[in-house]
């Protein structure tokens, strides 16, 4: 069986293996991924990991300092103005941030991808309408509109998620439209059309697999965006309502004691920063490894 002796030499890593290798070799991506996975695990295991009930108040134990500022291990990161364990609230807060980021990105991703792919694939009038919608959406001041709508409808987790999901679809639409435009002209799409594939089939099995990389990158970036916006809304007092442990809300509550106990503000903000940074690093890394030619 030596008819094709060279065949062995041709076999190398598959594109998938190459991609995985590039991912593991990318410093930023790995750092981001490790932190994100860690935070997801912490959020999932919150009931096990949290030393205290995040809602349990103890008026005699208010604003106990963290252990590195002279506190005790009973409350490693101290307690807030109502005597609630800060570490436990942070751990449960990860659930709020991650859930908002994930669900809001899911909603906005669905809307934006549908609009963007339609605009890119069908072009013409569809494209004109979608481009117009994107322009309108970009013109709306996000923070202000989100604040107003959440204020009118009442601040609850689901309202915040819904509002953010309905507001943050613009980048999905822009990127998916451009990617689809690029793919639409390729030969394999023309070939699929020539053999009589239906439009939904072409969209799903020819277009989507080729733009999914870009989609994932936008998903990570918009997750980060949604998490930051929720924190800002909660900080302004018109997002997730107390006593839900949201990191933005914790910063807002700590703000009043900032003069004497700045750590009340620093700690939740730092955690928020780390989470968003991790997601962004991962997104940037993904962009690098999936499209090496687009670097810089």
């Amino acid at each position: 069986m030596t008819a094709f002796p060279d065949a062995l030499e041709i076999t190398g890593p598959t594109p998938g293996q190459q991609l995985r290798r590039r991912m593991f070799g990318h410093q930023g991506f790995m750092i981001g991924a490790v932190f994100l996975v860690l935070l997801v695990i912490i959020a999932l295991l919150a009931p096990v990991l949290a030393p205290h009930d995040p809602y349990a108040q103890s008026l005699s134990n208010r604003m106990v300092r963290p252990v590195f500022m002279g506190g005790t291990w009973e409350h490693p990161l101290g307690t807030d103005h109502l005597g609630r364990d800060y570490l436990s609230r942070l751990i449960y807060g990860a659930r709020v941030s991650l859930m908002i980021g994930a669900v809001a990105a899911l909603i906005s991703g669905t809307i934006g991808t549908a609009l963007g792919v339609a605009a890119g694939y069908f072009g013409g009038r569809v494209d004109a309408v979608v481009t117009f919608l994107i322009n309108v959406r970009l013109a709306m001041p996000v923070v202000l509109v989100a604040l107003a709508v959440v204020a009118i409808l009442g601040g609850s987790l689901s309202v915040v998620i819904g509002v953010l999901g309905l507001l943050l679809w613009d980048r999905f639409a822009v990127v998916m439209r451009a990617s689809t435009l690029q793919i639409r002209g390729r030969e394999f799409v023309a070939a699929a059309r020539a053999v009589g594939c239906s439009t939904p089939r072409i969209l799903l099995s020819e277009i989507m697999p080729n733009i999914v990389n870009n989609l994932i990158v936008v998903v990570t970036l918009e997750m980060a965006h949604a998490i930051l916006l929720e924190a800002a809304l909660s900080f302004l007092g018109v997002g997730v309502q107390p006593p839900t442990p949201s990191w933005g809300l914790m910063v807002s509550e700590g703000k009043n004691m900032m003069l004497f106990e700045p750590w009340l503000v620093l700690i939740p903000g730092a955690v928020l920063f780390v989470l968003v940074l991790a997601i962004n690093l991962m997104g940037d890394g993904l962009r690098d490894v999936t499209a090496p030619e687009n670097r810089n």
Binding site: L236, G248, V251, V265, V276
Partner: peptide, 22 residues
């Protein structure tokens, strides 16, 4: 630039207040 995109602006503002005002 990476840090800038991840920094919550309200938190950044509060940090500046703690450092430069307090």
């Amino acid at each position: 630039s990476v840090a800038g995109q991840a920094m919550p602006s309200f938190w950044f503002g509060l940090i500046l207040i703690v450092i430069f005002a307090i």
